[in-house]
Design a protein around this nucleic acid. Structure first.
Length: 105
DNA sequence: TTAATGACCTATC
DNA sequence: CGATAGGCCATTA
């Protein structure tokens, strides 16, 4: 039943995000293979069927701002998780992409 | 089945 | 340089 759907590709990229770094939807979409999956990427993370291996909290938009709706338990929790990874989360739940934007190994 | 929406980005004027 | 518009894929109703 699983045939490597777009979600799998997106999850695969998100899973490659190293600790202490964050990736953007567009970047993930690009690494996934198509730079137009940006929307589907957000959808995939929104579905987040495997939050255990899909740290959506490490995924931020182009502005470095986290999502308005978190699934792990609370958006403020995400900021805490990012901080636990050594990431600097701003007061507005924004991350410094200039320092943590994952290059995409 | 069709239609509409969505945690977005990129390109162009 | 700055701002606007459009587009693309998948999911859900």
């Amino acid at each position: 039943m699983e045939k490597k759907s777009t979600f799998e590709l997106i999850y695969d990229v998100v899973r490659q995000i190293p600790k202490g770094k964050v990736a953007t939807y567009g970047q993930i979409a690009r690494l996934a293979g198509n730079a137009k999956w940006s929307r589907v990427v957000g959808y995939a993370l929104h579905a987040n069927p495997d939050p255990a291996n899909i740290p959506c909290f490490r995924v931020v938009n182009r502005f470095g701002g986290l999502s308005p709706a978190f699934v792990f338990g609370g958006i403020n929790v995400q900021a805490d998780l990012l901080r636990a990874d050594g990431i600097t989360v701003r007061d507005d739940n924004t991350v410094d992409l200039d320092v943590f934007m994952w290059n995409g190994l």
